[in-house]
């Protein structure tokens, strides 16, 4: 069998953006009420990668976030923890110490996040550093400049190399869709990432707008669907950036359910990269429990 390389992956289908917008609008008209809403909101919480990716991050900030990850709102028992915390490589050790063997995973961005403008050796070193420090998951960025200049082979090989460097850690490949400009590019980049070995594909770094629009996420989910239909292999999806409300998060779940099915509706296969989403979801959960609209003053902001 020929080794997989960019040259022998299937041609990506073209995407009509207006058609995608219409399809997405249909997901947005789904009405999620009552028990579905309660169940959905808890699912959202459990899928969050609680994230801090600032130049000004300190061990103190990361520690606080790790606590929040396990204690979203202790006033309300029965809530899940988030799926993971997401930090820079330099903070992985701090998070590992804080979380110990807790079920909350540690994700680390790598490959010289967010721009990725460094040689491959540096990126591999960056990745290995994070893994060695205890990261369960690696969120790498692709070389968008190379992609846009048509060097798809380069992008493909780079992802494959990072995948190798990850060892047992799961690899999330960030396409930074806001820089790819078209949905055709989003689809092509998704296919490259998946075939090169991504365990997850992820929309954005959170540093570029627009980030995880539903149109982009839809396009990436269709790539995952097609790959599954071709190979029987599941790939995870992580929209990141821009999903800050419960409503939008639920619409994302609707999309996952209707495109990929219930098998993807858990945090092994679907994540939200978000920092402020958790509290909005908590407020919504309290609203559904109590019937009273909530204030952010009552929800902690670690």
């Amino acid at each position: 069998m020929e080794p997989i390389s960019f040259l022998n992956i299937p041609t990506s289908p073209s995407i009509d953006k207006v058609g995608v917008e219409e399809r997405v609008a249909r997901f947005q008209t789904r009405s999620i009420k009552n028990e579905s809403k309660r169940q959905g909101l808890k699912m959202v919480l459990s899928m969050i990668d609680l994230t801090t990716l600032e130049g000004k991050d300190t061990p103190g900030k990361v520690k606080q976030m790790c606590y929040k990850a396990q204690h979203l709102h202790d006033l309300h028992p029965g809530l899940p923890t988030v799926a993971a915390v997401c930090v820079y490589p330099s903070m992985v050790a701090v998070a590992r110490k804080e979380l110990k063997n807790a079920s909350v995973k540690i994700a680390s961005v790598s490959t010289v996040f967010p721009a990725g403008q460094a040689p491959l050796e540096v990126k591999i070193t960056d990745t290995k550093f994070a893994v060695d420090a205890g990261a369960d998951e690696i969120d790498m960025v692709i070389s968008r400049g190379k992609f846009l200049s048509g060097e798809y082979n380069f992008v493909f090989d780079e992802i494959a190399a990072i995948k190798e460097a990850c060892g047992k850690a799961r690899l999330k490949v960030i396409l930074e869709t806001g820089e790819l400009a078209t949905l055709d590019n989003v689809r092509k980049a998704s296919d490259i990432a998946i075939y090169a070995g991504a365990d997850f594909i992820k929309t954005s770094t959170g540093k570029i707008q627009p980030a995880a629009t539903m149109q982009v996420t839809y396009t990436m989910l269709m790539a995952i669907r097609d790959y599954f239909d071709e190979t029987g292999i599941m790939i995870g999806m992580k929209p990141a950036g821009g999903i800050s409300t419960s409503k939008l998060a639920l619409h994302n779940l609707v999309m996952v359910k209707e495109i990929l099915g219930d098998a993807w509706l858990n945090n092994h296969w679907f994540r939200f990269g978000a920092s402020s989403l958790a509290n909005d979801v908590l407020m919504q959960i309290m609203k559904t429990e109590t019937g009273v609209y909530q204030s952010s003053d009552y929800f902690t902001i670690d």
Binding site: K33, N34, S36, S46, T81, A263, L265, N266
Partner: peptide, 16 residues
């Protein structure tokens, strides 16, 4: 509480 990792079905409740 343990994180949710199992697959469950999620149905839309009637919304009349």
């Amino acid at each position: 509480m343990a994180k949710q990792n199992k697959t469950e079905s999620w149905e839309y409740a009637p919304s009349l």
